[in-house]
Amino acid sequence: MIPSDHFVRMYNELFKMLEEKGHSHLQNYWRRIASLQKTILGPYIEKDGLQGMYDYWEHIRIEENCDANLEITDDFFEFRMNKCPSLSKALDNDAGAFEYYCDHCAGWVKPVVEEYGYHYSSDIISRTLPVCVMRIYKDRKKAEEYNQTHTLPAKPY
């Protein structure tokens, strides 16, 4: 088996192979995983909206050993990653990290939250430091305003 802890390093290789075939191949794969993600994250959003997102990512913070802070306001849910275990593993990897590794996260999450009428905004900040900020807004305009503040906006599609 591929240990669950090592799925990250396996799909990091898949990202490289799909990118070699063309970026649309990578995007199609992200969409496929987004569909799976919807079956897991979707019920949380359907039940409790932003609070549901908070509950889901709090569970992720614990299970994936993330050093992260979560916040919820009237406008948005924020997941602030202080040390991302996923990028950390991709970097600590004898095969080397895929150049656009971080983009997959938005690629998997953005389509799901948008299906529920929310607006995704994420600042990757750096491709070599395991920090980032993701916000999911109720209001499109506020998400777009927040996008303007980003160092490295995530644009998976």
């Binding site: 088996m1 669950s4 799925f7 799909y11 799976l36 897991i40 614990i62 299970e63 050993n65």
Partner: peptide, 10 residues
């Protein structure tokens, strides 16, 4: 911790 749901994605 172990995030077993990664197996679903695999």
């Amino acid at each position: 911790e172990v995030h077993m749901d990664f197996h679903l994605a695999t």
